[in-house]
Design a protein around this nucleic acid. Structure first.
Length: 954
RNA sequence: GCGGGCGUGGUGGAAUUGGUAGACACGCAAGACUUAAAAUCUUGUUCCAGUAAUGGAGUGCGGGUUCGAUUCCCGCCGCCCGCACCA
């Protein structure tokens, strides 16, 4: 090679990258200005947990956000792109228990260790706004928020059945229990009754659901998952009056009936409770039973919830949950109920167990009155498929039109009464109304054998119902509902029940309130004082923060705050009455920490507090990027918190067209995967994985472990994980190839929402490309600056201009649409064209200027170095995004494909504005076209200007 | 079971108003340079037939709409993700 210019021959990332990073830092170019006149753009990636190492997933996540942040900056926005640490949580405590250190030291050491490689990646981050959620300043503000939420009625305390993780020794929210196991520990979750703090997320159930509709820049998948999680259903909540109550609470005795006769007329609730307590006073464990519900069931009837009141005439039983208060009450005095409850509990909570569990039932002997059929009663069963956690914990069973009810009815030989005749022809066979609409259904004896055969769908009437029919249809066998369709039937039945005073239309949500008490040390202390006289009292705001003590020990299981010799009670008095009191020792769920951190960035949170007005101005986050694993948990909590903060007057988002939404745009990126390799002759699963770099391929396609010579099998290509030994350390890649190469690789090839497979050859390809860009730049003798516009170009120069502007248009669209892989492809094309182009002229400089500014969001160090090399003004970071010249996108002559009967046979090079008839004439004269047509007759010629010509011949 | 998504060369993937299927990259092959290798550069690379020109087939499978379908519609098959006895 000969010397071509004054540029260094080789691009040395190890020298170039730190040099630019220190220039950026010195000039403080990434600091966001709260008072800028420019339109704002808030780019945010989900902040990391400081585990101690950054991994490739982080690199991909932050690289995507960085592309957006840098691109928006070049587009003229004032960009806020901050970084912080989600630093409270279990791993710090687990590490402390395992190694004898302190969670705080462990956490902050990790943060220091992770910050350095993150800075080596050269992200355009405003580090001046950095904080960790375990900083006292951060949790002080969070304690303020807790108290504000309390004032607003968004916080409450209650004893509730909670999910207890026996490994982490703490409570979990419903969202944190996955397949009956703790989301972090994987331990089977137990149910325990505990005193807990709750956030009233259900207040916003409707709003959180409604808000999803406006989030048009969120993935459909995430919106659907949240909507399903909120789980709205509209239906009828109604009571079935008990016909005989003697067995409730007293088993085989009937002194309760006697008591009922003693009951006062129109008693108050308290009188009811006192009354039933009297009845139960000989039973030791009645504390566990919700007596309100029991007594209401006795006096007013058993409450059920249904979305299908139109099928009430098809009801053949009522089913209670094993955990229903009435069931529990009966279990107190009758062991068969307790035995049944125990049997149900045995099934467990795992996904398979539940879905495969057989239907179990127990007849209580109670009967309820059918609301529409005078004199008819239905048996009341306890059934294991009825959940206490949804609706009222009781349902009515309509076997003909609900599969679970049908399974249950078949098992226990309960009647199956079809009441909906399918509308669709192909479903006609599934239900057999015998004649017309069927008889008026007013049979008072609903036992199977006594039923009019024309009401039966159990096979005794010629046609057996094999599958419950849940579709549209016409009501039959249904008295006053006969002939109505599903929707009208629901409306009519609901109206009738309301009129009878037995119930009303209600909306149910699956969403539960968010239990936030955690019996752990490393979290935000709940700012509450527990006073024997005054109960739970908020810590006055001027006494915040309630600070975590440093001197704690993990020598006992459980919560170190609870074991602390002084923290809980020494010098603690009740703010209300002044008497000695105790601190709340629970800490807040760490998901609360990540529910408002985006606001803290905008508000420049520091030891002096934060500026909520500034926070409001920066919100909503314009582009949020993170993993899809947070689709429900974090993203739902953050949406709730933002609404709460608005209602408390801390945030004002009245300027946002997204209402109370914190994240206007969301992108969920795919994972970084890598091949796994396992020793073929190793039996122990955890010992069989080997490092990919120690594996070599044999000529016959098998693999061998180099250090030991043992045979190796290639495993699945899966997410990088330490246990599978398929991790690649980003810092090693930075050292070997440079940060730009690591960034370029994770954005190339695969679409951002999909997984990208880490391969050695892919990294080398990215590395070669960076060298190629540098060689194109160093082959350039700068004749103009990189902002040149070669408006008088012709010939090859004009072709280069056209290619550059076309590439620019497409790559810009790619960034806008989060399709970075297509932007990367356009950058390749432009680079290839430039490396072939020989001219040292304005056209070269224009194309080069476009190229350098286009790669700047992806490979910022290389771009700065190139920009500097070709004489660009200032930093490329400050250079405006190049603009597309629309004239360069149109050609004077175009190539038009010629089709015969839809198959391409030839093409025409013609002026772009040639009239249709001339095109047609040329097409019909084309040799290849004539050959294809052969003997056939031309029937029709379709000319789509600028697109295609199709000749129809037969 | 319910909901969402996907199916294109040896591989990752392009083709976002129905208009040249396979851009770009990886891999592979051949060549140039080199004592040699690496690096770099050039060329080729959907499959089948043919030296070639060219012809035929082709976007999971089967139908349909259309001058024209990877794209729209109907019915299957397969894979992935989420939820899961939610009344």
């Amino acid at each position: 090679m000969t010397e071509k210019s004054n540029a260094p021959e080789k691009y040395n990332a190890a020298e170039v990258e730190p040099r630019w990073q220190s220039i950026w830092a010195e000039r403080d170019i990434y600091r966001a200005d709260d008072n800028s006149d420019k339109p704002k753009f808030f780019a945010l990636e989900m902040f990391p947990y400081p585990s101690g190492r950054i991994h490739m997933g982080h690199v991909r996540n932050y690289a995507m956000g960085d592309v957006v942040a840098r691109y928006k900056k070049a587009q003229g926005f004032e960009v806020l792109h901050p970084m912080g640490w989600d630093s409270f949580g279990m791993p710090a405590e687990n590490a402390a228990i395992a190694t004898g250190g302190h969670p705080k030291d462990w956490t902050y050491n990790n943060i220091d260790e992770m910050r350095a490689p993150m800075q080596r990646l050269g992200f355009a981050l405003d580090w001046s706004r950095e904080f960790a959620t375990s900083d006292v300043a951060y949790y002080k503000e969070q304690q303020r928020i807790f108290l504000k939420f309390w004032e607003k009625g968004l916080v409450y305390r209650k004893t509730a059945k909670v999910n207890w993780d026996p490994v982490d020794n703490t409570v979990l929210a419903n969202e944190q229990v996955i397949d009956g196991k703790g989301w972090r520990s994987g331990a089977t979750v137990e149910q325990r009754d505990m005193d807990q703090w709750f956030y009233k997320i259900t207040n916003y159930a409707e709003d959180l659901l409604e808000g999803l509709k406006g989030l048009d820049r969120w993935p459909e998948k995430v919106r659907t998952m949240q909507a399903n999680w909120i789980g709205k259903s509209e239906g009828l909540q109604m009571r079935f009056e008990l016909d005989n109550v003697s067995q409730i609470a007293v088993g085989q005795n009937d002194n309760l009936n006697a008591l009922k006769e003693e009951a006062p007329i129109n008693p108050t609730r308290e009188e009811y409770i006192e009354f039933i307590q009297k009845a139960l006073k000989s039973v030791p464990s009645y504390d566990d039973v919700d007596l309100n519900k029991v007594w209401e069931s006795i006096l007013n009837g058993v409450e059920i919830f249904t979305t299908r009141p139109d099928t009430l005439f098809g009801a053949s039983f009522l089913a209670l949950s094993p955990d229903h208060p009435v069931t529990k009450c009966m279990a107190l005095n009758d062991s068969k109920f307790e035995d049944f409850r125990a049997e149900c509990a045995k099934i467990g909570t795992s996904e398979e167990a539940i879905s495969q569990a057989p239907k179990l039932g127990l007849d209580t002997g109670l009967r309820v009155k059918h609301p529409f059929i005078d004199g008819a009663t239905l048996p009341v069963w306890v059934a294991n498929f009825v959940l206490m956690g949804y609706g009222t914990g009781a349902v009515f069973g309509c076997p003909a039109h609900d599969q679970r009810d049908l399974d249950f009815a078949r098992k226990y030989d309960l009647p199956v009464i079809p009441v909906v005749a399918p509308t669709e022809e192909k479903n006609k066979d599934s239900v057999h109304p015998s004649e017309g609409w069927g008889p008026e259904h007013n049979s008072t004896d609903l036992s199977t054998n006594a039923l009019d055969p024309r009401l039966r769908g159990d096979g005794r009437n010629g046609g057996e119902i094999v599958e419950a029919y849940t579709g549209e249809g016409t009501l039959i066998n249904s008295g006053f509902l006969n002939g109505l369709n599903k929707a009208d039937g629901i409306a009519a039945a609901t109206a009738k029940i309301s009129e009878m005073g037995l119930g009303e239309a209600v909306t149910q949500y699956r969403l539960r309130d968010w239990g936030v008490s955690r019996q752990r040390y490393w979290g935000c202390p709940i700012p509450v004082i527990k006073c024997g006289a005054c109960g739970s009292v908020p810590v006055p705001e001027d006494q915040l923060p309630v600070e975590l003590p440093y001197d704690i020990s993990f020598d006992k299981p459980g919560n170190p705050l609870d074991h602390h010799p002084t923290w809980k009670s020494e010098g603690v008095t009740c703010p209300t009455c002044g008497e000695a009191a105790e601190r709340e020792t629970d800490t807040l769920d760490t998901f609360g920490d990540s529910s408002w951190y985006f606001a803290a960035f905008g508000g420049s949170l520091s030891a002096d507090g934060m500026d909520w007005d500034a926070a409001s101005k920066w919100l909503p986050v314009d582009q949020y990027v993170g993993g899809v694993e947070h689709a429900v948990l974090h993203l739902l909590y953050a949406r709730f918190f933002t609404r709460g903060l608005i209602d408390c007057g801390l945030l004002d988002l009245s300027h946002s067209k997204f209402g109370g939404e914190p994240f206007a745009g969301l992108f969920t990126q795919g994972m970084v995967t890598h091949a796994t390799y396992a020793l073929a002759d190793e039996k122990v699963d955890k010992d069989k994985w080997v490092l990919p770099e120690d594996v070599d391929a044999n000529d016959d396609g098998t693999f061998v472990h180099l250090p030991t010579g043992r045979p190796v099998l290639k495993g699945d290509i899966i997410k990088m994980s330490k246990s599978k030994k398929n991790v690649v350390d980003p810092d090693e890649i930075i050292k070997g190839y440079g940060a730009d190469v690591a960034r370029w690789f994770v954005l190339s090839d695969s679409p951002p929402e999909r997984d990208v497979e880490w391969t050695e050859s892919g990294v080398i390809g990215a590395w070669r490309f960076s060298k190629k860009v540098w060689s194109v730049v160093s082959d350039t003798t700068a004749t103009h600056g990189p902002m040149a516009i070669a408006s008088d170009a012709s010939g090859d120069a004009l072709e280069l201009r056209k290619l550059a502007h076309r590439a620019l248009e497409k790559l810009t669209a790619g960034i806008e649409a989060f399709r970075f892989n297509t932007s990367v492809a356009q950058i390749y094309e432009l680079t290839n064209a430039l490396s072939k182009y020989k001219g040292q002229d304005a056209a070269r400089m224009e194309a080069l200027g476009i190229l350098i500014r286009a790669i700047a969001p992806f490979m910022p160090h290389l771009a700065e170095e190139c920009w500097n090399q070709v004489g660009g003004e200032d930093l490329v970071y400050h250079a405006p995004w190049p603009t597309v010249d629309p004239k360069m996108l149109v050609d004077d002559t175009i190539t038009m494909p010629l089709q015969v009967n839809g198959k391409r046979r030839s093409e025409l090079n013609i002026p772009k504005d040639m009239p249709k008839d001339e095109i047609e004439a040329l097409a019909l004269a084309d040799d290849a076209v004539l050959r294809s047509i052969g003997d056939a007759t031309v029937r029709k010629v379709i000319v789509v200007p600028g697109r295609i010509v199709n000749i129809v011949a037969s």
